[in-house]
């Protein structure tokens, strides 16, 4: 925990954190069945940073991501994104917050089966007053050739790329990725990670990625390890590896 504060102070000295989490608590159930999922979590993320939330199953990392994404509620604490308190927002304001600031990528691609690749990406573009150029993004995603295909005509990797395109096209401030490679093979996983890194660099989106894959932390700027709802370590990577250098 000491490291967290040092880290935060180091960043806040230069510029205010883009995402700031303070004293976050969350539990499910009540009485005997009560389960504390997050037990007072604090951390901060700078704009454009690539953060990896690492931890085993049940550590609270997905819950953390969902609360940041405004689709789950915390019991206590605060989250500040670009200077806005999200936990005090009502439902409508939260939807507006997600619309303006967030892109979401899940382990399951959740594409709309009767829309083509391009149309699925347009689903994201529709939400932004100033979306990224479609053609350029399709090229970046490696999907230009497949843009008229429907999800059931694509491989798992291509579907996940489409899902990333849907999240990225609105040029979100934060890209939230929940185990984006969880359902993919080694080679395809690397493709996806490469793409997320490229998005982070090219478009400057802050990336918060949840994974249980230890190796992936090496490509991040910032790594937080969670266990039993608490932060076990919070560190900046001095030396990032490229995706090609990762092995698992």
């Amino acid at each position: 925990m000491e490291m967290i504060n040092q880290n935060h102070e180091k960043q806040s000295g230069a510029q205010p954190p883009f995402l700031e989490v303070r004293g976050l608590k969350k539990s499910y159930g009540s009485g005997d069945t009560r389960q504390d999922v997050l037990r007072g979590v604090d951390f901060a993320v700078a704009k454009g940073e690539f953060l990896v939330l690492l931890g085993p199953s049940g550590s609270g990392k997905s819950t953390m991501l969902n609360i940041i994404g405004g689709i789950d509620k915390a019991d206590a604490g605060s989250i500040r994104v670009a200077g806005e308190q999200t936990l005090s927002m009502n439902d409508r304001a939260l939807t507006e917050y997600r619309r303006r600031h967030l892109g979401y990528v899940f382990q399951m691609y959740n594409l709309i089966p009767n829309l083509s690749v391009q149309e699925n990406i347009e689903v994201g573009a529709y939400l932004s007053p100033d979306p990224l150029p479609m053609g350029e993004l399709l090229e970046t995603l490696g999907l230009y050739e497949h843009r008229h295909k429907f999800p059931n005509q694509l491989s798992g990797g291509q579907q996940q790329r489409t899902a990333i395109g849907r999240a990225v096209i609105k040029n979100p401030d934060i890209l939230l990725c929940d185990e984006p490679t969880g359902a993919l093979d080694y080679k395809t996983s690397k493709e996806i990670l490469r793409l997320i890194a490229e998005v982070n660099e090219k478009y400057g989106s802050t990336v918060v990625m949840v994974t249980h894959n230890q190796e992936i932390q090496k490509m991040a700027d910032h790594v937080i390890r969670l266990r039993d709802g608490q932060i076990r370590s919070d560190k900046q990577n001095e030396e990032k590896l490229t995706v090609d250098e990762l092995e698992w």
Binding site: G69, I71, R92, T95, E96, R98, R99, R100, L102, G103, Y104, F106, M108, N110, L111, I112, V123, G124, L127, A163, R166, A167, K170
Partner: peptide, 16 residues
């Protein structure tokens, strides 16, 4: 049937 898609759309910012 489309619950996860709806969840994703809502998470991305689509209103009810």
């Amino acid at each position: 049937r489309e619950a996860p898609v709806i969840g994703t759309l809502r998470a991305t910012g689509y209103t009810r």
